[in-house]
Design a protein around this nucleic acid. Structure first.
Lengths: 205, 205
DNA sequence: TCAAATACTCGTAAGTTACTCGTAAGAAAT
DNA sequence: ATTTCTTACGAGTAACTTACGAGTATTTGA
């Protein structure tokens, strides 16, 4: 039926996240000892307590039988949640900054397709488009764009958000705010479209 | 199958709203102590009194057994559609403008609760907050707010989006952009909170 | 208009839960 | 057969919830 989402205590949550992250980075599950060091716990007993506890509540499983080493794993997450992966941080004029532990961000159902992804805006470099620090941008991954669409553009490995205007004599990128300057892509520039911007999302706390 | 809205006393209502807020912001329920601090109550006994009272009236439940920590929760009816009603147009300094045919707007699942609604921003009156014409604002309906939260405020029947700062000598409303002026609510002003702003959403075409 | 009921508040302390520790024996992997 | 990991146990503590008794504002109603 439904994936039961136990709401875990902060500490248990941190525990699960550590395992998730470790597995992600090292391509294998941590040992109890590694968890202990990583979380600054001073006793294996404590680690064991967490494992039992979380296993019992279904938030943690193991790939092998009992006693198997490095067997801890996070059970599959729910599928149709209407969320997209947060791929990185974008700041105009800088390369995309990847994110360590892959987060996922909930979006309206109509955006929840596999070719879409989310970027988080860092800094106020897009303030002229009324996009501010911390905003999320929903993007559809594609290499081409229509005239006038807002795209994630990579120019010489620097990322930015601009309107796309192909012209006979080259590509123009316009800021949404006409008070700012137009960028013209020259032959010497390396240029790539990272996707089309579908929406901007800002969470107030 | 209708949401049973007990009419609670203002104080009890504020209590419930605080828990809702806290859970929303912190992704976990508050402890009694945290409620105490947040609501400027000076005794755990008082908090406990509220909890018992509200639990008895059905306005509050707990996720675990008795004595479990951080278990307070508002019985909630989540909508399955992932969309919210668009209640009207908001433009700073004008009354809310109702919408003829009630539309509904898709939102991230985590916002799809029955106490939430959506407003559309009309004009550029909120441009200083980086909210522009056509943006959607997701709001949770409630009459109280915490210090510093962004609220939909009605002052003498004019609607606006501001940060809420209750002070000993009256309420202050701050624009998010510090370059603009602070509003002070006087005794002669009619003031009401229409809800707390949870998010802003902008669709690019 | 006064009394009585109701709604809320206080401080403290006892009772539970959630987590922590150290150590050591048992099982798997090399 | 040694090393690397997992499990077991018992005891302790900090973080939280609940109980209790008494008190003060606010509303009701006669």
């Amino acid at each position: 039926m439904e994936a039961m989402k136990k709401d875990l205590s902060p500490k248990k949550q941190r525990f699960v996240e550590f395992i998730q992250n470790f597995t992600d980075v090292n391509k294998r599950a941590p040992t109890f000892q590694e968890i202990m060091n990583g979380l600054k716990i001073r006793s294996l007993g404590t680690v064991n307590w967490y494992v039992r506890e979380l296993e019992h509540s279904g938030s943690l499983k193991r790939s092998g039988a009992s006693n198997t080493k490095r067997a801890l794993m996070i059970p599959e997450q729910k599928q149709n949640t209407g969320s997209l992966p947060l791929l990185g941080l974008i700041a105009a004029g800088y390369p995309l900054e990847a994110i360590e532990n892959r987060e996922s961000i909930e979006v309206p159902l109509s955006y929840a397709y596999s070719e879409n992804y989310v970027l988080r805006v860092k800094g106020d470099s897009m303030i002229d488009d009324n996009i501010q620090d911390g905003d999320y941008v929903i993007v559809r991954q594609q290499a081409s764009a229509e005239n006038g669409q807002t795209v994630v553009a990579f120019i010489n490995n620097e990322a930015t958000l601009k309107r796309y205007y192909p012209k006979p004599d080259g590509i123009e990128l316009h800021p949404r705010n006409p008070a700012y300057t137009v960028i013209r892509i020259g032959a010497e520039d390396e240029f790539k479209i990272g996707g089309v911007v579908l929406a901007v999302f800002r969470r107030y706390e």
